[in-house]
Design a protein around this nucleic acid. Structure first.
Lengths: 240, 240
DNA sequence: CTATTATTGTCACGAATTGAGACAATAGGA
DNA sequence: TCCTATTGTCTCAATTCGTGACAATAATAG
């Protein structure tokens, strides 16, 4: 949730929110940005609301920019969660109270919300996560060690992962999960972290090269006592 | 759009709608249900609104039931369209006027709508399309010969097709595009209509059989002067 | 300077899958 | 009984994939 003021209710479309599953990759781990609300032990995906005259996609881009400082990120919408009972008013009431806001004045926040979910693949190192008005932290958590999430956010993460997993080739190539240049090993580790399986090195390398999505650059001398790997980058095609 | 009354505005979530791309298959053609509004020459996808306490998915199911009489149909949500300018008030105003409804009273229908889009694969023969209060026809049109559609509905159809095309195997097996029993040729024609390409008969047959999704039944004696084909049906797995 | 070691890029070979045609087995009609 | 259109299956080559082998390093240790 983004900056909140009493006017938020009238500036924004009612009953509509978005949530974002922001993936990052560090070492061998796939991570997600998770927010924690002040003094509540309540964890949630970063989300926000849509201005009355704003494109839905722009609203999410705006939120992501506030959260990560990053612009021009490839966002992919993957599902809209619309069960009537997905909003449990209790945690939100707690969040308001602990933030010194009156649940009466902010009653609109306790109502039902339909949430459009997006995911983004961003470069872990480029980001300094920014908590927002209601939350005191916005941190990376490994996907397989998430804190308990409020409402249906665990389900949203699960669906994001499922979506990401199929046609992963194209998705990784468009996102920014890896730095601009990376080794084949790093690429393989990213695949393995996302798919949750281990892959055969030689087969993987052959398949990646045959996709014609990679450009080969100079070698990377890591200081290790072994052959230096090539660096690769994705060949970027026009925005479709 | 479904039944409309002055109370619709307060019974439903504001600014939220759904649209459905209902696919049917007849002969060799893939078709879609399209509505035409009374005396307007305005064509649109069947859609509707969501009750304040209704699950989004249930709202769509309800609309589909009204439109086709069919229950228990596999619906798949595929995208939410949220551009601020996707709603052009003019056609909707025309529709209201031509239906003898005052644009002032029904002003909420002219506002911005976010629309969650679903597709369904249903058996052409099971359906007697039902127009709703505002429309005078609800008819099948071949996907490649659609009338000009209002707003961004052509885009919605395009995206539905794109979505349907990948992982078509699983999707066809879950939907009801074909009758309960069908020949291999009918199955191939459905694939070809959806993918827009022609497929090799022998390769297709081998691939289909190797998927272990089909059960073989008795032969169909069509009256034609040639070998009778087997009938097949999809093996239905538990709902996931 | 040479031997050692961990890694990486590539190749080789059999297994599995796919493309494309051949062919036998019908179900009627002539 | 023969003919024809269609269907089910097989074959063979082409391609892709799983798997291991192997040579080419980039330091480090002796």
């Amino acid at each position: 949730m983004q900056k909140i003021s009493p006017s938020t209710a009238i500036d924004h479309l009612p009953h509509l929110a978005y949530d974002s599953v922001i993936f990052g990759f560090s070492g061998t781990q796939l991570k997600i940005l998770i927010m924690e609300y002040h003094n509540t032990n309540i964890f949630a995906l970063p989300g926000g609301f849509v201005l009355k005259n704003e494109n839905l996609n722009d609203a999410v881009r705006r939120g992501l920019k506030e959260r990560t400082g990053l612009d021009n990120i490839h966002l992919e919408q993957f599902y809209t969660f619309g069960d009537a009972d997905r909003n449990n008013a209790e945690p939100m009431r707690t969040i308001l109270v602990k933030n010194g806001l009156s649940p009466e004045k902010y009653h609109w926040m306790l109502e039902r919300f339909i949430s459009v979910a997006y995911y983004a693949l961003i470069n872990y190192k480029d980001v300094v996560p920014q908590p927002d008005a209601l939350s005191d932290s916005c941190r990376w958590y490994p996907v397989n060690a998430l804190p308990p999430l409020m409402m249906d956010h665990a389900l949203i993460v699960e669906k994001a992962l499922q979506t990401l997993r199929d046609n992963l080739d194209r998705k990784l190539a468009r996102g920014n999960l890896l730095p601009p240049k990376f080794t084949m090993k790093e690429l393989q580790q990213a695949y393995e972290a996302i798919l949750g399986t281990s892959l055969l090195r030689t087969t993987f390398q052959r398949r990646m090269l045959s996709l014609n999505l990679l450009e080969r650059h100079e070698k990377q001398y890591s200081g290790g006592a072994h052959k230096a790997p090539y660096l690769y980058s994705f060949i970027r095609f026009e925005a479709s």
